[in-house]
């Protein structure tokens, strides 16, 4: 089960181009989600392509974060959550009872709104996930840690203090460390829940550059409150409003020529 959950990168690269258009990587089909009696997501259907940055936008409480957290089953942690419909990643229903949630979360990484490095050293923060998934030797760990810190544009800033506490880093550095930690275990999909909302403009732009860079290797789904950010970094945009998917399409179209009046009002700042 675990191996077949998502096609391995090697195989998807081989049959890549053809398969890509045939089956989307993430296929959300009529998903509804209830917190107890209240319905937080109303029959959402959405198909996300591989190696594309998709932005979820919408006013607070519209369900965008909830939907994002469905994709790696983080909502499992909340009591009284019920999900209807099907959610497929690489053709496999991730809510199938046989799915190994651990394996799913390994393939679908997540970066949170509030940077949450472990109170450990910078090195140990990245090593944590690697060790969980069986990387044991010092040489392998060192190599993978350097690789992911480099990919998250943090290596040059921290290479001389890998063994000092991650809590000593600035907010922006901490968030990039969290990204490094997430990509170290080589997920295929990276979920980002307002990753830059707590950062200053300079740190934000560094994280945005990083996202554009990571797009080459990962499929990224990002929730953001920042319209400009969505416009700058995403290829596709989905606009949500009170649990409904109002409009989904190419970012440029959503921002310049949306089909729906509500989308236009929102992206132009008239409500929200």
């Amino acid at each position: 089960m675990a191996e077949t959950l998502i096609p391995k990168p090697a195989t998807s690269a081989a049959s890549g181009a053809a398969a890509k258009t045939a089956t989307p990587l993430i296929d959300i089909d009529k998903v509804s989600l209830y917190y107890g009696a209240s319905k937080a997501l109303k029959s959402i259907s959405l198909k996300l392509e591989e190696k594309v940055v998709t932005a979820f936008i919408g006013p607070s409480g519209c369900g965008k974060s909830t939907l994002l957290r469905c994709l790696n089953r983080m909502n499992d942690l909340i009591d009284n959550v019920r999900i209807e419909g099907s959610m497929r990643i690489g053709g496999h229903n991730i809510y199938d009872p046989n799915v190994d949630v651990i394996e799913l979360r390994k393939r679908v990484g997540m970066v949170f709104q509030k940077s949450n490095p472990f109170p450990k050293s910078i090195y140990e923060n990245v090593a944590y996930g690697l060790r969980l998934h069986g990387v044991k030797s010092k040489a392998d760990l060192d190599a993978r840690i350097e690789e992911s810190l480099t990919a998250s544009a943090l290596w040059d800033e921290v290479k001389d203090r890998l063994h000092s506490s991650a809590l000593g880093l600035s907010g922006g550095q901490q968030q990039r460390l969290c990204i490094a930690r997430a990509i170290a275990i080589k997920p295929e999909i990276l979920l980002m829940d307002e990753p830059a909302s707590a950062l200053d403009p300079i740190a934000t732009s560094r994280v945005e550059d990083l996202i554009l860079d990571l797009k080459k290797e990962f499929t990224i789904v990002i929730v953001t409150h920042n319209m400009q950010q969505a416009a700058r970094i995403s290829d596709q945009t989905a606009f949500f409003y009170i649990g409904e998917l109002v409009e989904y399409g190419a970012t440029q179209k959503i921002f310049t020529n949306p089909a729906q009046k509500r989308t236009e009002d929102y992206v132009s700042g008239r409500f929200g």
């Binding site: 790696n72 983080m74 942690l77 651990i102 394996e103 979360r105 390994k106 990484g109 997540m110 949170f112 509030k114 949450n116 490095p117 472990f118 109170p119 944590y128 996930g129 969980l132 998934h133 969290c178 930690r181 997430a182 275990i185």
Partner: peptide, 18 residues
């Protein structure tokens, strides 16, 4: 202990026990 730490660990594919 901040819930964010637990979430971060689980999101990396750790089990609850780990």
């Amino acid at each position: 202990i901040p819930p964010g730490l637990r979430e971060a660990s689980l999101a990396l594919g750790a089990t609850k026990l780990e």
